[in-house]
């Protein structure tokens, strides 16, 4: 296992460096003067100089690169041109709610997608299987931003079950400690606050969960079908075990292992969907943060956000891979 961990980390390090280098070069290899291109044609000489200074464009490229890596390694992401604030702090405040939304969506996707996929495999050629397959096909064909709007209209406006938008009700005082709104809500010790935050999370989380739910149910179904046809289950049945025991004690455990990879593979998709979902529901998050930055031509923020989110995806994918290797020994010995 140790060898596998070392191999995986050795594989990830160049990718991490590649991510940083791509973002670094992307802004600097724009034809002409990047500072003018980024600040815009109508920018004043002062604004162009501010952009040059903020991105460190006034030094030779190799020097810029070394400084860039050095600052990143020390956790210094620079200052926002728009707000003048420390980007690291601003990112913590905005990325945490996005992670929270993505986790909530993932939990819903697993809670619905797994049983649906497993049932579909167990009840072949029944309405359950057809329903799951059609549902998952429609699920992957819908844009999340449209699902969100439809949920706002039907469950928010028409049924009045959920709030229409926002992260929490206006006027609610939630001291920011972790920047995860549900946790901060819990920490207030006031369950009304926690309930309010949770209530605001439901529709966005359902919205964001749909595509992952569709993929999880497809994967769980095919994985379960594969396991159900394997020799060791034939043996289990031949021993006279009940169908229930065969499924619950023998098939399920192995069928669920490949689903773990979905979590790693879906992380990037979830974070991408979160950007759109946050826009639909007007929620605090990294989506709104980066879009505001683009509108204000605040490139240090765009640069830092893209790097941090990509690094986050790489690291979490690594963790998922390692968990997968623990669950399935065939992976680490492959």
């Amino acid at each position: 296992m140790r060898g596998y961990i070392v191999r995986r980390i050795a594989y990830v390090l160049p990718v991490l460096l590649g991510v940083v280098t791509v973002v670094f070069l992307a802004l600097r290899l724009i034809p002409g003067d990047p500072a003018i291109a980024l600040a815009g044609e109508k920018a004043s000489a002062e604004q162009i100089e501010q952009m040059r200074e903020a991105l460190g464009l006034n030094r030779p490229l190799p020097v810029q690169y070394v400084e860039f890596i050095g600052r990143l390694a020390s956790g210094d992401l620079g200052r926002s041109i728009r707000t003048g604030g420390d980007i690291r702090q601003e990112l913590i405040e905005n990325f945490a709610p996005t992670i929270e939304l993505s986790i909530a969506a993932l939990l819903i996707a697993l809670a619905v997608g797994l049983p649906a996929g497993i049932l579909a495999a167990l009840r072949r050629r029944t309405p359950i299987e057809y329903g799951t397959m059609i549902g998952s096909l429609v699920g992957i064909s819908m844009p999340v931003f449209w699902i969100g709007l439809m949920l706002i209209y039907w469950l928010g406006a028409r049924a009045a079950w959920f709030p229409l938008s926002g992260t929490a009700s206006a006027g609610l005082d939630i001291p920011a400690r972790t920047h995860f709104y549900t946790i901060d809500g819990l920490l207030t010790g006031d369950f009304t606050v926690f309930g309010d935050v949770l209530w605001h999370l439901v529709l966005p989380a359902i919205t964001l969960s749909t595509i992952t739910m569709a993929i999880v149910s497809r994967m769980a179904r095919s994985s379960m079908l594969e396991v159900l046809g394997s020799d060791y289950l034939v043996t289990a049945r031949a021993k006279g075990l009940s169908a229930r025991t065969v499924v619950l004690r023998h098939a399920l455990k192995n069928a669920l292992i490949p689903v773990v990879t979905v979590i790693g593979l879906q992380l990037g998709a979830l974070l991408s969907g979160a950007v759109l979902t946050e826009t639909v529901f007007g929620r605090v998050g990294v989506g709104r943060y980066v879009l505001n930055a683009i509108t204000a031509r605040d490139y240090p923020v765009v640069q830092a956000t893209v790097i941090v989110v990509a690094l986050f995806v790489v690291v979490i994918s690594l963790v998922v891979d390692l968990v997968y290797a623990i669950l399935d020994p065939r992976i680490r010995y492959a």
């Binding site: 990037g268 950007v275 980066v290 893209v306 990509a310």
Partner: peptide, 8 residues
């Protein structure tokens, strides 16, 4: 592939 596609 490391970048969330929409953010990229």
């Amino acid at each position: 592939l490391s970048f969330p596609y929409l953010l990229l």
